[in-house]
Computed example of a mutant assay.
Amino acid sequence: MFSALKRSRPLVWLLLTLPALWIGLRWAITPGEYGYGHAIADSGDWAAWLLMATLAVTPLRLVFKRSGLTLWLMRRRREIGVASFGYAALHTAIYLVRKGSPEYVLAEFTTPYMLAGWAALALFVPLALTSNDVSVRLMRRGWKRLHRLVYPAAVLTFAHWVWSAFDPTTAWIHIGILAAIEIVRIALQRAQRVM
C-alpha cells in the first residue's frame, strides 16, 4: 500500500479528499446531529492540520535527510499545501452558504476574526494557483519568494482560529505546536549556515 502511495499522485489526492467526503456525508445523512457547527469546525481543523504538515516538512528534511518518509513528504508537500487551501475554501463555502446573504457576510467582515480569516484565504490563493511544476519552472527564484507568504498566512489562520473558537484552548495548543515547528526550522537552518 505504501509503495503504491509513494508512486501514485491520484491515490494521494484520494486520501487527502476523504475527510471532505466524510464531512459532506455526515452532514447529509445526519444533519440534526452533525450540522453547520461540526462541518465548519472540521473543515477548518483539516485546513490547519494540513497547513501544519506542510510547514513541518522543512524541519523534518533538515533532521532526517535520508528518511524515505521525509523524501516522500518533500515530493508531496505541494499537494498537501493545496489540500490545506481546499479545506480552507470548503470552510469558507460552508460559512457563506450558512449566512446566505451578502449583507450578513459584510456585517461580520470587519470583525478581527473574520478579517484574519479572509486575509489568510487571500494569501493562500496565489500559493495554491502556483503550486504546480509549470509555475515553479516559469517563476524560478520568484516562486520561493512568493511561497514564503505561507508564514504570514499561517499566523493569520491561527489568529482566526483563536478569535473565532468558543473555547480557544485547542487553537492555542496548535499554535504552540506551530511555534515549535518554526523554532526548530529556524534553528536548524541557522546551524547549517554556520557549518
Rank of each mutant, 00 (worst) to 15 (best):
V97N: 08
R193F: 11
S131T: 04
A53C: 09
A116Y: 00
W22R: 01
R190W: 15
W172C: 11
G35S: 05
I175K: 04
N132V: 07
A41H: 14
A4G: 05
L138G: 01
L90T: 03
R77P: 03
L69Q: 06
Y87M: 08
Y36T: 04
H147L: 06
Y113G: 06
W143R: 03
L62R: 12
A20N: 05
R77H: 07
L121T: 00
F109M: 13
S131K: 01
L21A: 13
W27L: 01
R66G: 15
A93N: 02
V63S: 14
L188D: 14
L156D: 01
V134W: 14
F158V: 02
R140E: 09
G37T: 12
V162W: 07
I181N: 03
P126M: 05
F166P: 08
K6M: 12
V63Q: 13
L90N: 06
A171W: 02
V12Q: 12
S67V: 06
Y36E: 05
V63G: 05
R137M: 12
R75F: 00
V150Q: 12
F64D: 00
V97T: 08
T92I: 00
A41I: 03
F158Q: 00
A4Y: 10
T54W: 02
Y151T: 09
K144P: 02
A83M: 11
A165C: 05
A128S: 10
L69R: 04
L62I: 04
P31K: 02
L25Q: 01
R98H: 14
W118A: 15
Y34L: 06
A122L: 12
T169E: 09
I40G: 00
V134Y: 10
A83V: 04
A153S: 06
W27H: 12
L71Q: 14
A39M: 05
L138K: 15
A120S: 15
I23H: 02
T92P: 00
F64R: 05
E108K: 09
A179F: 10
G68E: 11
L127M: 15
K99M: 15
L90G: 07
W72F: 14
W46Q: 03
R145P: 07
A41T: 07
S43Q: 01
A120K: 02
R77M: 08
L127E: 07
A122Y: 00
W163K: 02
G142I: 11
A28P: 05
F124G: 01
D42H: 12
L69G: 04
G117A: 09
R185M: 10
R148Y: 08
L50D: 06
W13Y: 14
S135Q: 07
Y95K: 00
A116C: 09
D45W: 13
M114S: 09
T17E: 03
L115E: 06
A122M: 11
R190A: 15
A179Y: 04
R98F: 15
H91R: 05
V57P: 04
T169F: 10
A48S: 14
R148K: 13
L121I: 06
K99E: 13
T157M: 13
T169P: 00
I23N: 00
W27K: 03
G142C: 11
V125P: 01
K6E: 14
E79M: 11
V150T: 13
L178V: 09
V150C: 10
I177Y: 02
H174S: 08
I29E: 11
E33Y: 10
V57N: 07
G100V: 02
I183P: 05
A89V: 13
I177N: 07
P102M: 10
L115R: 02
T111M: 08
